[in-house]
Amino acid sequence: MIWEVFRQEEPGDRHTHCGNVHAPDREMATLFAQVQHGRRMQTNSLWVAPKDEIGEVDADETEFGGTTDKSYRWAITYNNIDASFAEEVAESEADQEEHAEKRGGT
């Protein structure tokens, strides 16, 4: 059966999906995954989960973030406030801007 593999690079990082392995059970899946997916890339921890156990919902089925105007929850909306006074606020704004571009506008 197929097991999905999730890798965490550093302690505290999220586990992110990095591939899969074929294995007859969970114990063998962990043995195989540590070589196939933890061998060359920096790795702190791996998760394995049976592929069939993973559910998915995607953008075809739902509208992530809703469809009505939610600009009030984005920093960029408050453009008469200069965020540069505090590094962390400026950074947050920059991150939000980047994500806004990915979403295709605010």
Binding site: H22, A23, L31, F32, V35, Q36, R39
Partner: peptide, 11 residues
């Protein structure tokens, strides 16, 4: 026998 077992033994 399989790609995964190949990788593990090579390691």
């Amino acid at each position: 026998p399989t790609p995964e077992s190949d990788l593990a033994l090579a390691n």
